[in-house]
Nucleic acid binder design. Structure first.
Lengths: 209, 209
DNA sequence: CAAATTTTTGACCGGATGGACAAACGTTAG
DNA sequence: CTAACGTTTGTCCATCCGGTCAAAAATTTG
């Protein structure tokens, strides 16, 4: 075990949370190199030396943020399992992922930034934890395909396409907003996107005869 | 007119191209703030002051790169038009976009970085040129839907999903590689992705009865 | 060739940035 | 109250970074 039980005071726990919240804001739009400790300290409402009392290096903040992120980030996929109707399972996976894009856009962008930069800090996790999770779930999906419950195709590319389409609404948010224009009434972009994705993944574009 | 005819020598044209090529490499992985002039000069094989002789500010390089990018970037969508079979049109749009992700991954990442950072430098273009192009093409697609040629849905979200799924292979390349593992034979990730996307967009996942 | 012009370089500058440190301040337990 | 411990701050430093400048080197022009 390489985590020697960090005994923390109440204040330490609180302040560290405030810093992480501020850092999420800054890192997710500026990337690691683009973000400065001053910006984070500013956003957290404290002085730079004070911040450095809680996290000794800039990288420590980023690492901690990344670790907390990864668990939540993969949770929706972990929930996908063999019990229940395959179509329902996939439909709710898509919905959960879309909800995450809506509720945690900064986390999505933080992740996107890291991958764009070549994943220098989380490469091992991608090749280890992530790969085996995808392999495991892909096998379940392949089972559904063999049983004729859903159409046969490469399940890993299916997972990619679900990631891509849902995270797009968080990562490319400004572009989506710019193209759709001001949100005028209706039940909003989110429900529009949810409806569209459900249709796309279930029945595609060919007209129903 | 705000472009007062920049008369350039042969050397200027060559060196500027070398710099832009190097800058594409650096900006696309580091983002604007994360990239340094030294890194670009290094990659271009020249000294920093020498580079600054051809581009007087870091931002000038980025702007030039962005301008050159945008034309190529939207070309595939521009090609989508009303003549020919709707299904074929959409299928070849997807293929063209996927080819761009394969052939110009750095351009894709450059664009992604800019959007992730809130598109500070290209916002007007998103709300202007991009929006009207999407509106125009969405109207064509809507026509196809009304004619019953393809299933009815929001054409703008359809365009988003094509962008998302295809660009994913460029922007999240390291993740895709990590999950798929070493490319063992076959006709490669690209053809796999192309086949998968064609199936997804045309018929979706429900099994063909 | 020589003069004029373009290209390249080394040295330099001011400001930003990551981080160290000791002193001051606050809190809590005995 | 006071000693011990936890927290906060001002100051400082070395390095990095964007950008300038004058002078040297190379190239083009007459």
């Amino acid at each position: 075990m390489d985590a020697p039980a960090p005994r923390r005071t109440r204040i330490q726990r609180e302040k560290r949370d405030i810093i992480l919240e501020a850092a999420l804001e800054v890192f997710s739009t500026q990337g690691f190199r683009g973000a400065t400790i001053d910006q984070i300290a500013d956003a957290a409402g404290m002085s730079k030396p004070n911040l450095l009392y809680y996290f000794r290096r800039k990288e420590d903040i980023h690492t901690t943020l990344m670790q907390r992120l990864l668990d939540t980030w993969l949770a929706p996929l972990r929930e996908l399992d063999d019990v229940g109707d395959p179509v329902t399972e996939i439909r709710s996976y898509i919905r959960r992922k879309l909800e995450m894009a809506r509720d945690f856009p900064r986390e999505s962008r933080l992740f996107a930034n890291e991958i764009l930069q070549g994943a220098p800090r989380i490469m091992p996790m991608l090749e280890g934890e992530l790969k085996s999770l995808v392999d495991e779930k892909a096998e379940i999906i392949r089972g559904w395909m063999r049983a004729g419950k859903i159409a046969g195709t490469d399940p890993r590319h299916l997972i990619f396409s679900i990631w891509a389409t849902t995270q797009h609404y968080a990562d490319f948010d400004v572009q989506v907003r710019a193209v759709l224009g001001p949100d005028r009434g209706g039940d909003g972009r989110f429900e529009d996107a949810a409806r569209f994705l459900e249709q796309l993944f279930l029945t595609g574009l060919l007209p129903r005869k």
